[in-house]
């Protein structure tokens, strides 16, 4: 709900998208409705169908079923209202930063050089203006890609793993920009497999093997595992303990984090029983400490769960 009581408009709407590659169903009944100003995160493991989904939304991959609308219009007539940054660096390596920006801006009939100058400045690319895009570091290449996608001031931005392979500082800088865009009423669709990035989104959907398996805000989406308890214990990695714990029906996830072992279990199971399992394997009785469920627990538990199906 907007502050003035009206409902914000749905900007990106996808209904029942599906896509086959050969006879493999890579996106299955994919539906989303994303409101103006939202940053929507599509979270999923590799090969879950994230890239295919985002490409269908942008209209560069043919969909086998379903419909997409951007601001109520078909994608073909909304191309100048969207910006897209592909997963892989899609700018021309032989051209300079400025030449790339000029080119992509002109593809959207933007020729105001003063405006482009300002943008270059804002994305801290001014010092690299005459450098070839291919020689930029990964972080600056990402910035250039984003810059090329926003120069025509689109309403909607599609970002396919925008910070993959990027250091945390640059990632924060990019996200500050995403928030700034969102604050200006732009709608952002982001795919990622980084929890840290997913936490930053307003709305999330988990996708696994082509299907959305959970959706909500980063807070509410955790509830989709149901009533669970999380325990942590200082414990060095021991594969046989993992195996023994997973043999237990109630255990949803066993995950090692450095020196810490995290266990997610259905709430009804007893803590002492788990402690016993560990003791049986190691001969050492350890105290399981209750912990907070985090997004990564949910993500791995959900995707693992489905693999066991």
């Amino acid at each position: 709900m907007n502050p003035d009581g009206t409902n914000p408009a749905v900007v990106i709407e996808a209904r029942s998208l599906s896509k086959y590659y050969g006879d493999q169903l890579v996106v299955d009944d994919f539906s989303v409705a994303i409101e103006q100003g939202e940053i929507f995160g599509l979270l999923g493991p590799n090969a879950a169908g994230k890239t295919t989904a985002i490409r269908m939304l942008c209209g560069i991959v043919e969909r086998d079923a379903g419909a997409v609308s951007i601001n109520g219009a078909a994608i073909a007539s909304a191309r100048n209202r969207i910006g897209y940054v592909s997963q892989r660096f899609g700018q021309y390596a032989e051209l300079t930063v400025w030449e790339n920006l000029r080119f992509y801006a002109e593809m959207y009939r933007v020729t105001d050089e003063a405006l482009l100058d300002d943008l270059l400045d804002r994305y801290a690319l001014e010092p690299f203006r005459h450098q070839r895009a291919g020689n930029l570091s990964g972080g600056y290449q990402r910035r250039l890609a984003l810059l090329c996608a926003v120069a025509h001031d689109p309403d909607v931005l599609f970002l396919d793993e925008p910070t993959a392979g990027i250091d945390p500082v640059t990632r924060k800088l990019l996200w500050d920009e995403f928030y700034a865009l969102s604050a200006r009423g732009k709608t952002l669709f982001v795919t990622t497999h980084y929890m840290e990035e997913a936490q930053r989104c307003h709305q999330l959907a988990f996708i696994d093997r082509g299907r959305i398996i959970a959706r909500g805000t980063p807070l509410t989406i955790k509830q989709c595992l149901g009533d669970v308890a999380v325990y942590a214990v200082k414990f060095a990695f021991n594969p046989s303990v993992h195996k023994a714990l997973l043999a237990n029906e109630a255990v949803l996830l066993v995950n090692q984090f450095g020196l810490e072992l995290r266990i997610v279990v259905a709430n009804h199971s007893s803590r002492s029983q788990l402690e016993q399992v560990i003791a049986d394997e190691t001969g050492e009785r350890l105290d399981l400490v209750p912990s907070e469920l985090n997004l990564e627990d949910v993500f791995i538990a959900l995707t693992q769960h489905r693999k066991a199906d």
């Binding site: 490409r55 191309r79 100048n80 897209y84 592909s86 892989r88 700018q91 021309y92 992509y104 593809m107």
Partner: peptide, 13 residues
């Protein structure tokens, strides 16, 4: 091959 085509295809050309 260099993925610039993908970036071109989303433009309104």
């Amino acid at each position: 091959e260099q993925h610039t085509l993908e970036q071109l295809l989303v433009t309104p050309m």
